[in-house]
Simulated scan of single mutants.
Amino acid sequence: MDEIETQVGKTKNKPIMVSVCVVTYNHGKYIGECLDHILNQERDFEIEVLIHDDASTDNAQEVIRGYQERYPDIIKPILRTENQYSKGITNISGAFNFPRAVGKYVALTDGDDYWCDPLKLKKQVSYMEAHPECVFTFHSAKVVSEDGALVNGELMRPYKQSRVVKPEELVDKAVGSPFASFLLRREIVEKLPDYYVDCPVGDRPLELMAAAAGDSYYFDEPMSVYRFAIGGSWTESQMTGDYIRKQEKFAEDLWKMYRRFDEVTGGRFHEAAMRAGGRNEFLTKVNVRDFKTIFKPEYREFFNELNLRDRFFIGFEYRMPKLYNWLRNRKNGR
């Protein structure tokens, strides 16, 4: 068999409120912590945990089987023997988890991240139950390195206060949102547009889909933890091989996504979508340190959106590259 799957429509004969969709690949070190924090959520409603493991070569599937045995009504895994991502299926949640979700809401997380607030789901569900016009809620996150050290407290904090986020704002957002913060009404993901299916990442098109459906709400609380650039992650994979070409390809793919979103929504969010595409193009130039482009006048607004620390070090590297590289190598012990 290519997979092991358990599918149960109800938990303890009660309707499921939230389908938690988890994607994992070689997350054996982390998946237990991820599942513990999901299972330890304080809630007065039922959940299911839909896991897709993409043929991990570590002990991730063994760990998942252990949780399935202990929580057979909640943990519902697909354990692959062949890697689906390598076959061109880039958005695993949409291909394998969303179609089997039966909850009123869909929550998401990668297997190497975890929820650090035991009231996370209850807060989000309570808000959405009280505000039927809200189609999507999300929040900030703590960002840590593989060893658990804090990386940047502002990296996953798109807004400075809890508030309603209008559709145009969600499309044209300067700072990324943690995937593990997402809670959407299930009807949003029941029919996936091609700009989601074809995109190399799953978070940004989901935000666009939510924007097309209505208002969102942002909690300015770090209710999850995002592990940055760990081994085997998408971010880490981008840093290997021909990094510059990968960044260029990523920018091209996201431009396609924004343009297709613009078409599908009849131009309702045209200005916001074009600004978002331009911002992403600028950020890829920052990543590859294309200083000639970074400091062009047409990108000044995007440059000023960067935090003070990033602007300082970009300017430092541009004006004094030898000193910058010497200090960086010394810091890294080289």
Rank of each mutant, 00 (worst) to 15 (best):
T24Q: 06
D310E: 06
R65Y: 03
P118K: 15
P77T: 04
L150V: 11
K120H: 09
D44S: 05
S177Y: 09
D310P: 00
F179N: 12
D290I: 01
R328P: 01
V175T: 15
V165M: 10
H139P: 07
K296E: 10
F219N: 12
F45L: 05
A60I: 00
A210N: 05
N329F: 00
A60C: 04
P167M: 07
Q68M: 07
A251N: 01
F179P: 06
H270K: 15
V264I: 11
L150N: 13
L150I: 11
E298P: 09
R70A: 08
A180D: 05
G278E: 02
K14E: 05
G66E: 04
Y71M: 01
I47C: 07
L323M: 10
G176A: 13
R204W: 03
R275M: 04
P200G: 03
V175C: 14
Y324W: 12
P158S: 12
I31F: 10
P297T: 01
R319T: 05
K285T: 02
R309E: 09
D220Q: 15
M1V: 05
G267F: 05
V264W: 00
A107D: 01
E187V: 02
K322D: 14
I294T: 07
D54S: 00
S181C: 06
L206N: 08
D113W: 08
T265A: 10
K123P: 01
